[in-house]
Design a binder for these strands. Sequence first.
DNA 1: CATGAATGAGGGTTCATTCAT
DNA 2: GATGAATGAACCCTCATTCAT
Lengths: 205, 205, 205, 205
Amino acid sequence: MESEEARPRRRQARGERRMSEILDAAAAVFAEQGYEKTTTNAIAAAAGISPGSLYQFFRSKEAVAQALADRFTAQMRDAHGEAFAPADLAARDLDDLIDRVVDPLVAFNVANPGFKALFARPDMPPGLATAAGPIQSALLGRVEAILTVRAPRLSSSERTRSARVLVQIFQAMTPVVVAAAEEEREAEVRELKKVLRGYLAPLDG
Amino acid sequence: MESEEARPRRRQARGERRMSEILDAAAAVFAEQGYEKTTTNAIAAAAGISPGSLYQFFRSKEAVAQALADRFTAQMRDAHGEAFAPADLAARDLDDLIDRVVDPLVAFNVANPGFKALFARPDMPPGLATAAGPIQSALLGRVEAILTVRAPRLSSSERTRSARVLVQIFQAMTPVVVAAAEEEREAEVRELKKVLRGYLAPLDG
Amino acid sequence: MESEEARPRRRQARGERRMSEILDAAAAVFAEQGYEKTTTNAIAAAAGISPGSLYQFFRSKEAVAQALADRFTAQMRDAHGEAFAPADLAARDLDDLIDRVVDPLVAFNVANPGFKALFARPDMPPGLATAAGPIQSALLGRVEAILTVRAPRLSSSERTRSARVLVQIFQAMTPVVVAAAEEEREAEVRELKKVLRGYLAPLDG
Amino acid sequence: MESEEARPRRRQARGERRMSEILDAAAAVFAEQGYEKTTTNAIAAAAGISPGSLYQFFRSKEAVAQALADRFTAQMRDAHGEAFAPADLAARDLDDLIDRVVDPLVAFNVANPGFKALFARPDMPPGLATAAGPIQSALLGRVEAILTVRAPRLSSSERTRSARVLVQIFQAMTPVVVAAAEEEREAEVRELKKVLRGYLAPLDG
DNA sequence: CATGAATGAGGGTTCATTCAT
DNA sequence: GATGAATGAACCCTCATTCAT
């Protein structure tokens, strides 16, 4: 009786594990080669499966990238969903606030080097640029929320622009942080935070 | 009699013009499609020549990109070689200094949208990352020179790192400036300068 | 005790039912897609089984088509085996004779649209042309038998040829009859019979 | 001076010859293997060119078949465009009329065995069924024109149906004629004409 | 030198068939 | 027996590069 439920579930579980393995492989290959140069055969080989098997899980190369994007999005949301508790926003010291926002994001990017490697690339199919959208807009929204509290004098459009600038800085400097040797990383993060603080300080208060 | 000397010269001249035309076409196509998706046939077609002719001027697709990179480097040097006249460095007001460095660079990037479009792409063959090297290191060197005068307290390694951070900020924000609508561009440049000043001010003096 | 005999038999019976279901599904898919475009997965799906199970009953895709052909042959034999009772041949009016031959064949084809759909296709593997052979030669034999009685003046080779022509006409026009809307079908059958009569009449008697 | 015109023309000429060679090869391979089983590599090999070259002339496999269809259409039109001179229709003896219509069509089909082989196949992409359309409808139109004169008592819809039946008979029997050994062919054609006459005679007059 | 047809390796994808569960 | 994931050869097509004209 339980087997009737368990069997499909085990199958599904195995399938999901395989999908996850494929995405791991894809993340690595995409990160190393870029979207265009990555071949589906290379992904399959990296995942230890045959070319045909890849297509039992993903409709196309683009679908692999899409799924990878979705997984990154979900993982990132999980990683620091509560970091922006609104209560804290007003009271905290600026440096502390920056730490609270930046540190988990940096940690995520360090843990997932494929992330930037995939989305920083403008050679992606147009559909996938959109895939990165949710990630960005979530981040943008949070930064805007912070600015609303910390820099109330900004007009709405100034706030939007400033948020965009902050996110841009972060995204520009992240690859360097990720690529840095273990012992250099903290220093790089410090610089990133300096830049952010330098831009934020005049607006704060 | 003179023709024996003039002909080769004219040929060379015509050849150089052709090469330049090809690079113009290549810049446009690379900018629009990215390195990998750009086909040599597309470049040839955009240049109004046959695929075969392209290979009379360039050994390979990569060589076209390489030459384009070299031309950008040269153009950029020409564009603002004297901007950093060392005499000025100490005396000038920080904002003024930033203007003097940033404005020509922005102007160049706006005038050559293919530039960033080409080098911002991590899908380039490894050899070409190096191609962008000269440009970067020239810029880095100048920024370091500025820091040497304006932030004499920095250690050598701090100076190097700070210069890198400044260049990174600039490169990250340039695409947005270039892509911005005409009437938005100045506002974007202002933000860029704010970021640079925010990071530089604490070091200055 | 009886189970030791009954089980295998039930198994066999179930197996035959499964095979029949698979052939039903195959007939439908072949009819709709043609032999080449039909995938074994599609047949399996249409039969409500897994791809692997299909191969427990049939050695290959071609074997499925082969078995389908065999079943069609048998079904057709069953359908009108007695239609050509030799006693009738001489006495009957020509129109009546044609009705007796054509009507059951048309009925069979209407009831089994996959039949023509499968064998009318020259994209079948060469081995399968032979599969249709028994059907054809049975039909040919009967038509020849009719001609032997009704057109005794024909030489043996003329008789063979004429029989072939008649079968050919029938096979050419059947798809149209099958494809015709319900209310048009009778009119199409009338035309078919006109053609057959027009060819037969001069030979008759 | 003339070279400026001649060069492109010679190029075009060579290109057209190549296209024609490819279509010849395609006709042979399609005829032997059917549309689906025919590989573009096989066509290229049969034409003595590389796979890539095929695609310099045709966008896709389907485009090859399309072009082949178009060429057949044109050739057939050329082959017997004047056969139906309306003046003759009323006066001629029925056998003579049939000869005039059938003979050139048979000759064309014998000369182009790929023709039927390609269009008789229902495994063609839907778009190409249409490609055969012009051929069929031209033929249908002509037969209808004949019937209008020779069988004036038929209603419009009867005329259409009869024309269709006649064309169907012709198309069904042509493959046999084409496939027949040289010395058997005339006998096969005779049978074909007998069938047509047997159907037409009752309508005629 | 210019041309553009020719090349052919390789890419994404499909599908008949097999095999571990 | 049944399942469905796994396989891998083969397909259609692309494109950087070469070569005859």
